[in-house]
Design a protein around this nucleic acid. Structure first.
Lengths: 129, 129
DNA sequence: CGCTTATATCAATATTTATTAATATAAAGG
DNA sequence: CCTTTATATTAATAAATATTGATATAAGCG
C-alpha cells in the first residue's frame, strides 16, 4: 500500500524544513543553474557522496527536485513549481478553518473560550502564606 | 552597533527554518485568527511559557510576527507580508548570479570547469593491484 | 558472470535545536 | 518600595538532524 497523504500542516512543515538547511539551499541554487548528477554535485560542493544523497532524498520527498536515472548516473533537476506549491499549501494551511483541521480541535475550543483572564489563572503560588 | 545584515542565503535559511517547525506553525496559524498575548498562547496551546517565548523569538527574528507591549503583556500578531518577503528573498537568492554571491565563489569556479568526468576522478582504489 | 562505476542505505557519532526548570527582568498597583 | 503579574533569559538536558565511514545495491562493460 502507498503511504497516506500527510496533513496540510505536515506537508508544509516538511517542505519548509527541507528548505531551511544550508547544504540543501546550495544544492537548490546550483540546480537552478543546470541539471547535475550526484558526482558533479559532489565535485562542485566538495562534500561527501552520502551527504549529497541524504539531502537529495529530503529535497525529493519535499517535492523540490526530481531525479532520473541515466545509465549509472542519477541526474538531479530543480522542480520549478516546487516553491509555489509550498506557498499554496502554506496559504491553504493558514486559511483552512481551525474547526476543519483535526489537530486544532482542542485548541480551537480553548481559543473560542478565551475570556481575557488567561494570565490570572496561572497563579504564582504563595497564595496561602 | 547594530548587527550586520545577513547574506541573502542566511536570511532565507533563517526564515525557512523558522517556518519548518510544528510548534511555530501552530503559533502562526493561531495568530492568523487573532492577536494573542503570550499567556493566551500558553493557555490555548497548553505548553510552557518559556517554550512559547523561545518560539516567538525565532519567529520575530525571521520577520514573521510582531510583538508589542501592552502593560505587562506582550501582544503577538502575524506579520501579514511575512511569507511574501521570504518568497521574494528566496527568488532573489535563486536568481542572483553565482559570481555575485561570495559564498559561491569557489563552487561557481568548479561548476564552470565541469567536464563530464567528475565521476571518473573519484577512483575507488585498487588501481595498482 | 566478474569488475568497475555511480548511487543509495545503514549504523554510529557529532551537531543542532527544542524543552524544561530555575531565575531574572519589566510593568503595574497598593 | 514591596508585591503581584507577565514575559524573557539562562543553563542543563532531551530530542531531532546532519555527517561520517562502511557497506549494499544498481547499472553498464569486457
Amino acid at each position: 500500500m502507498k503511504k497516506a497523504k500527510p496533513s496540510l500542516k505536515l506537508e508544509v512543515e516538511r517542505a519548509f524544513k527541507a528548505l531551511g538547511e544550508p547544504t540543501r539551499l546550495v544544492i537548490l541554487r546550483l540546480l537552478a543553474e543546470q541539471e547535475l548528477c550526484v558526482c558533479e554535485l559532489e565535485e562542485v560542493m566538495d562534500i561527501s557522496q552520502p551527504r549529497i544523497s541524504h539531502h537529495l532524498k529530503v529535497l525529493r520527498e519535499a517535492g523540490l527536485i526530481a531525479q532520473r536515472r541515466e545509465a549509472q548516473r542519477s541526474i538531479c533537476s530543480l522542480n520549478q513549481e516546487g516553491l509555489s506549491r509550498v506557498v499554496e499549501a502554506y496559504h491553504a494551511y493558514m486559511t483552512e478553518p481551525l474547526s476543519v483541521m483535526v489537530e486544532f480541535r482542542e485548541m480551537h475550543e480553548r481559543l473560542t473560550n478565551l475570556d481575557g483572564n488567561s494570565c490570572e489563572r496561572k497563579s504564582y503560588g504563595k497564595a496561602c502564606l
